[in-house]
């Protein structure tokens, strides 16, 4: 059975390495500062007893006041998982550091999030629309996109 790391446990580990960067947590999730995302990702990837070498999925959810990004992480060797969340409080061109250099599996997923939710991933090598065409107006998965 895959053990889900609790938010308390993960936020303690992150805060030890990056003081004050994992501000909120609950039983399952931990919210981290957007600017520290890339460093924290690398820390989670490289620390042997965390060993999050596998990025399961990246999701963006539009909560109107903010856009939340959800990262599902997994360690196949230790068989445990974690959920990392971060919030962007702006609606025009929200910016998040890209994690492609840590997990290359983020490549197509970040392009999809940019395409459908309009979150700009800084440092992505090839941030183009993926499902829609370049001239498409707007980002359809946002709640204010009415088609």
């Amino acid at each position: 059975m895959t053990r889900a790391l609790s938010g308390q446990e993960l936020s303690r580990r992150v805060n030890e390495a990056f003081p004050g960067k994992a501000s909120r947590f609950n039983d399952a999730d931990v919210w981290i500062d957007t600017e520290a995302l890339l460093d924290i990702s690398r820390f989670l990837y490289e620390t042997p007893d965390l060993d999050f070498q596998f990025l399961t999925s990246i999701t963006a959810v539009d909560y109107i006041e903010y856009i939340e990004l959800v990262y599902h992480l997994l360690s196949m060797r230790l068989n445990h998982s974690a959920i990392l969340k971060t919030r962007c409080h702006t609606r025009d061109e929200p910016k998040v550091p890209s994690v492609v250099e840590v997990w290359r599996g983020a490549d197509l997923q970040e392009r999809e999030v940019w395409d459908l939710m309009g979150v700009h991933f800084e440092g992505h090598p090839n941030l183009k629309r993926i499902l829609l065409w370049e001239e498409f107006p707007g980002h359809p998965l946002r709640k204010d996109f009415l088609g």
């Binding site: 399961t56 999925s57 959810v61 290359r104 599996g105 490549d107 197509l108 997923q109």
Partner: peptide, 28 residues
Amino acid sequence: ELGFYLVSDGGIAPYRCKIRAPSFINLT
């Protein structure tokens, strides 16, 4: 791995339904 990430706001429809599609990610 085919995954669904659902967010509920208490209504009758999902607030967000994300599909983790294996074919899509396997193209990486």
